[in-house]
């Protein structure tokens, strides 16, 4: 089941530009110094938008073997996206607030 609750205007624009017709889009929020979901299962090729919903800056990064990325830091209302291209498990964290962690399971 997809975790998208709502996409902001900006997120919808991104969705339209996203390409791959079959791929799904998910939104994971960063709210009250936590990711809005602890665990998310997606398929290879799917994209996750990480949206900052707090009044301060957040970061999103992963140093997982499967997928390494660093989305930098961005303020409330903005989002950045990652497309998962290999199957496996990806640990996602916020570098600024180390208690913020979630897992993305990427399935074939």
């Amino acid at each position: 089941m997809h975790a998208i609750v709502k996409l902001s205007g900006a997120a919808v624009a991104a969705l339209l530009l996203a390409g791959t017709a079959m791929a799904a889009e998910y939104e994971v929020g960063q709210k009250n110094k936590a990711f809005t979901v602890k665990e998310l299962t997606v398929k290879v090729g799917d994209t996750v938008h990480f949206t900052n919903q707090d009044d301060f800056f957040h970061n999103v990064f992963s140093l997982s073997d499967l997928k390494t990325f660093d989305l930098g830091s961005y303020p409330k209302g903005e989002f950045k996206s990652v497309t998962f291209d290999k199957a496996g498990k990806v640990e996602v964290e916020c570098a600024i607030h180390p208690s913020m962690m979630m897992t993305i399971n990427v399935e074939e």
Binding site: F56, N59, F61, L63, D70, G72, A95, I96, H97, P98
Partner: peptide
């Protein structure tokens, strides 16, 4: 916030600056 921030202190300039949290988690910010 139990979080990590660069405060822009004078000691942060130059090559010999203390890397702080970066030494534990090598994420640019």
């Amino acid at each position: 916030d139990n979080g990590f921030h660069n405060l822009g202190l004078a000691s942060d300039g130059g090559e010999s600056a203390d890397p702080g949290r970066y030494a534990i988690k090598p994420v640019k910010i």
